[in-house]
């Protein structure tokens, strides 16, 4: 679609203070040209503030913003050449879909025929060409967000900013549009920052995911690495499900359920709590086992088996449903752990 190459983005040591609250606290992020980075975190962690500072819609208290090596910290938002998709309701209601998409081109003085052609091409890209003459209120929420994406991309922005663009949509549409956003982003090759509080969304679409907490970047890594090798307890807890199991680390080896597995960098030495993913927990039927199956939740291809330990604590194991079928409530089982290295804190 575009022969334009992505550009690099550098958010350097950003701090943003609102009264007594530090929304960003020394936040640093580098995005590679053409890369899609998702910022993930709970409400109030500063992810939207970071995106708005990059967009020029907010000013940092300190720190700098560079795009393609050029310092944009003091450049106003309308001169930053960035396309932005908001959470919802950002289409201009008095314009048709086509006019919405062509709006940025009109501001740039592109002649009518060219901007119409470009708008139609963008609408084709997001699969809404047939709705070009409709108004926003005649479209569904998902269609409106597609139009917003087409509008943001029509100006061929150097950076695409997505501010929780799926959060107002229902579950099925979210998944469809999420995949579509990724497809379009790969097609146009625009460097993209995607802010979301939904970990599944972030892990599914981004090249790298940055997990934020209290204005800081806790970890920035590819989704698989982030999931398998969380750098901090916050990341381990925030991304995916975890069991907190008492463990002991000796010489870089953690002992959990009597099984020794490698401890991840950042783990404590000695006694601690291991963060164990449910899918790494194993169950073995054993009438002399000390744990008891408390419940089995069927989730389609997988099932979650909740097991009660002698001390009353609950451990969740995620198994293939075909395997989980062998367990029933009240069965005695033996717990184990396999595969991945663990973070012990």
């Amino acid at each position: 679609m575009s022969d334009r190459q992505g550009v690099s983005v550098d958010l350097n040591n950003l701090t943003r203070v609102y009264g007594s609250m530090r929304a960003l606290d020394g936040f640093t992020l580098q995005i590679e040209p053409g890369e899609m980075v998702a910022l993930l975190g709970p409400s109030g962690c500063g992810k939207t503030t970071a995106l708005r500072i990059l967009a020029g819609l907010d000013e940092p208290t300190s720190g700098s913003v560079s795009v393609a090596g050029k310092d944009l910290t003091s450049v106003p938002a309308n001169k930053r050449d960035m396309g932005m998709v908001f959470q919802a309701y950002s289409l201009f209601p008095h314009m048709t879909v086509r006019d919405n998409v062509a709006f940025g081109l009109k501001l740039r003085g592109v002649d009518t025929a060219k901007r119409r052609a470009r708008a139609d091409a963008m609408l084709e890209l997001v699969g809404l060409a047939v709705h070009a003459d409709k108004y926003a209120h005649q479209l569904s929420g998902g269609q409106q967000q597609r139009v917003a994406l087409a509008r943001a991309l029509a100006i061929e922005p150097s950076v695409l900013l997505l501010d929780e663009p799926l959060s107002a949509l229902d579950a099925k549409v979210r998944v469809q549009l999420r995949d579509e956003i990724r497809r379009v982003q790969l097609e146009v090759g625009t460097t993209t920052l995607f802010v979301t509080h939904d970990q599944e969304e972030a892990l599914a679409v981004a090249d790298r995911v940055g997990v934020m907490s209290q204005g800081k970047l806790e970890q920035l890594a590819p989704p698989a690495v982030l999931y398998a090798e969380p750098a901090t307890p916050f990341v381990a807890e925030f991304v995916g499900l975890n069991n907190k199991i008492p463990a002991a680390v000796v010489n870089g080896q953690a002992e959990v359920f009597g099984v020794r597995v490698p401890a991840l960098a950042g783990s404590v030495e000695g006694a601690g709590t291991a963060m164990v993913r449910p899918e790494t927990v194993t169950l073995t039927a054993d009438e002399h086992g000390t744990a008891t199956v408390a419940s089995v939740a069927f989730l389609g291809p997988i099932s979650r088996v909740h097991v009660t330990q002698p001390d009353g604590s609950i451990v969740t194991a995620q198994l293939a449903s075909s395997t989980a079928r062998a367990f029933a409530v009240g069965d005695r089982v033996r717990l184990g752990v396999e595969g991945a290295a663990l973070l012990v804190v």
Binding site: A77, M84, F86, I155
Partner: peptide, 27 residues
């Protein structure tokens, strides 16, 4: 008038005057 309309217009390159004449004014 939604804040998002102003911010969307600005991010697409609109000046304050263009926002008022092309978005807020007609609305």
């Amino acid at each position: 008038l939604r804040v998002q309309w102003r911010e969307a217009a600005v991010s697409l390159g609109a000046t304050s005057r263009q926002y008022w004449t092309q978005v807020a004014g007609p609305l």
